[in-house]
Design a protein around this nucleic acid. Structure first.
Ligand SMILES: [Zn+2]
Ligand SMILES: [Zn+2]
Ligand SMILES: [Zn+2]
Ligand SMILES: [Zn+2]
Lengths: 121, 121
DNA sequence: TCTGAAATGAAAATGATTTTCATTTCCATG
DNA sequence: CATGGAAATGAAAATCATTTTCATTTCAGA
């Protein structure tokens, strides 16, 4: 496993909001940074593994990445423009734990995402 | 715009749950149906436009389709052996709708999955 | 039957992502 | 200071889903 190139993380921060691997790469190019597309992909993957960034999908299927806070949370995403709101998941955390306990499951985790059309779309 | 080839819809129904375009195509091939991959893609797109079918994304980015109005449920999956329990998501449905409404989103949908270790693992 | 629009599908193009693999950079040890 | 090997890098090729092209077929209506 390769470790993340810190310039990738720095660029993603600077990009603000979501950016795809291709976008991060282009941005670094424009800024004159010398880096390969492969390294950008590998670094972003690594950041996702380390849970330092979130990865979502655009409507067209392209993966987009974003720095996310430390706390566990969920996303409300606009299907059309991609606007994203981070959501506290208190209710769903309880739901997941209860459902799992009812069925005798341990070491429980969950994923949840809400999508729809935002007010502007 | 092309209209949907009815055999595509029929195959998606028969597939049960979600299926990607490639999977629908392979299924039709196995069944000896003569159809082109292009037509499968076009038909699925058309069904999505007509809101007869929902489209989501797998983690790997592949688009998956399912009939609208199929009974909605969630899954509790064992990380180790893959045992799966179908879950009614009453609580999470309300949560998703409320969160979305609070942020002015329309046409709301959601995904949710719980995973853990089952009692046997 | 004739005619044009719609449907079809094979093949090529596209575009993101992954894989390969040779090269470069690091680093610890002698 | 070597120097040997592990990790990182990136160019190019490979993958793979999806879209586009375009020539052909189907089909409904005149
Ligand atoms: Zn986040
Ligand atoms: Zn929007
Ligand atoms: Zn199990
Ligand atoms: Zn639900």
């Amino acid at each position: 496993m390769s470790r993340s190139n810190p310039r990738v993380l720095s660029t993603l921060e600077r990009a603000g909001g979501f950016a795809s691997a291709q976008e991060v790469y282009r941005l670094m190019q424009r800024e004159g940074q010398k880096i390969g597309l492969t390294t950008v992909y590998r670094s972003l993957q690594s950041l996702v593994n380390d849970k330092i960034v979130d990865v979502l999908r655009r409507d067209d299927g392209e993966a987009i990445y974003r720095l996310c806070g430390e706390t566990h949370h969920h996303h409300l995403v606009c299907k059309s423009c991609g606007e994203t709101v981070e959501i506290e998941g208190g209710a769903i955390e309880k739901w997941a734990l209860n459902v799992a306990k009812d069925h005798g499951f341990r070491e429980v985790g969950h994923t949840a995402e809400i999508f729809g059309l935002c007010s502007k779309c």
